[in-house]
């Protein structure tokens, strides 16, 4: 019952994250939306892991969390580097590959 409904919740969360990435301009909020999408994927893993009585899903969640932490650190580092150069964290202002 719970686990048949849970992937749907995860799909909703993933879609919210996707629409956030598409429409927001603030690079920090976009990174938050990416974290939300990763969380949605984790929920799916947890749900199927529970349903199939398997530990593998939990292991994958662990690795996804690690990669998410690394991604947040590097992504925010890039935001700060861009802000130093452009005085803005707006993705629409960063439309050139090089200057």
């Amino acid at each position: 019952m719970m686990t048949s409904f849970l992937p749907l919740v995860a799909a909703v969360l993933f879609s919210i994250g996707a629409v956030g990435v598409l429409v927001r301009r603030n690079a920090i909020v976009i990174l938050m939306c990416i974290e939300l999408m990763l969380n949605a994927v984790n929920l799916t893993f947890a749900s199927y892991s529970y349903e199939l009585r398997s530990m593998t899903g939990h292991i994958f969640i662990f690795f996804v969390m690690t990669v998410a932490a690394a991604e947040a650190a590097v992504g925010l580092g890039i935001v700060i580097a861009v802000f130093r150069k452009r005085q803005s964290a707006d993705v629409d202002d960063v439309n050139l590959m090089r200057w």
Partner: peptide
């Protein structure tokens, strides 16, 4: 650190 004030919230 970045302290931004947004003029427009949505892109495009």
């Amino acid at each position: 650190l970045v302290n931004l004030e947004e003029s427009r919230r949505l892109s495009g």
